[in-house]
Design a protein around this nucleic acid. Sequence first.
DNA 1: TAATTAAGTTAGGTATGTCTAACAAATGAA
DNA 2: TTCATTTGTTAGACATACCTAACTTAATTA
Lengths: 220, 220
Amino acid sequence: MDSLSSTEENYLKALYHLSVESAGREGVGTNELAAYLMLKPATVNDMLKKLRDKKLVNYEKYGKIHLTAQARKSALGVIRRHRLWETFLYEKLEFTWDEVHEVAEQLEHIRSSKLIEKLDKFLNYPRFDPHGDAIPNAKGEIEKVARRTLAEAGIGEKCKIVAVRDNSATFLQYAMKVGLGLSSEIKVIAKQDFDGSLEIEVRRKRSVVSQKFAENVFVL
Amino acid sequence: MDSLSSTEENYLKALYHLSVESAGREGVGTNELAAYLMLKPATVNDMLKKLRDKKLVNYEKYGKIHLTAQARKSALGVIRRHRLWETFLYEKLEFTWDEVHEVAEQLEHIRSSKLIEKLDKFLNYPRFDPHGDAIPNAKGEIEKVARRTLAEAGIGEKCKIVAVRDNSATFLQYAMKVGLGLSSEIKVIAKQDFDGSLEIEVRRKRSVVSQKFAENVFVL
DNA sequence: TAATTAAGTTAGGTATGTCTAACAAATGAA
DNA sequence: TTCATTTGTTAGACATACCTAACTTAATTA
């Protein structure tokens, strides 16, 4: 049970995210993973062999990739570290919503279990990160929450943002421009049947957002 | 002015520390640097060529190694990050004196100037780290403080620890066993001319420490 | 000053993680 | 059902950062 390199951790994390996103489909493919990691399929293929030898993925030539139970736990460990650091950056260092991800991407690879448990305590054991995503616990367990998107909300409904699907800076900056932040109250004013776009009101400010945007906002 | 790899940063930091320690001598040698970094001289020699090509060191075959002004600034940047993280770990996360170094050694390589400036602010612009070492400012300037070691203190004198020379866990754990912490008051009870060892009293507890130990404790 | 030792260098090798170019298998549309 | 397209694989290269073994230069001391 030797420890993983940052690169290996990134592969496992990517595989975890992809397997959650594509729940229903039968697994993750080489090209899909390569695109996600912004690497070439050949590179990913090489690494896959290594991960298979280390018993971190089940995968055979031309087949789909599946994380082993052990690797899934490791992936959740990385995600735990990532989300705790995001919470730290947002709550303690006053980073904005869209700035936390990039730095957390580096911090998540610091190897020290003591560090992460102390950080968890310092942050008072947060359950969600600044994007509303659940933080896995030290045992590698993650809360599963059924979520509804803004796109599913009815006209006149008031709802509260609990999370976003897309953590890219582009999306988050757009969200901020519209006036959205975590815990913002949104009121649905109108809905276009034609393209699914919505008129919404956030802090007395009205905006029109596309269906695509609305599908990326989870509400309660 | 491309950015440095973690490895390169470690070389520059090491060279800075060695050049400060050996102030007076004419420079740092390959073997000395290799021993400090726990690498083989051949490895260091390779890297030195690379650093020379990047104009980070002045050095010619069989000669001594000197940091360029630019590299010195980079080294101080790394030291700044290291010491700010140590302060964070000690003050906010309740790490002990001897635990901070190892983790800070990893955290110092996180690349984000925003992060470090926000951290500095969060810590309320500390001037010294938990070992009493000055924290360089954002411009790469460091306070020079003339220091006296415990070994130079006279019998009957009371002094206060302001820093330690050796940050190894071994030394720090020994120091804690003797009852020393930063800001501890020490009283010198007796001194042996024979081997320079001292009898000291810290928080009503008496201990005998060697001259070597005393030379590693800076006092005011 | 010549011989020995210490310090520094070179050549060639390894592992990790990336790439391109060429090829093979699987999929799906005509 | 065949053939074009997509998907995945292999082989060979490269950069980084390490190593060992053999060598050279410099320093020390007898």
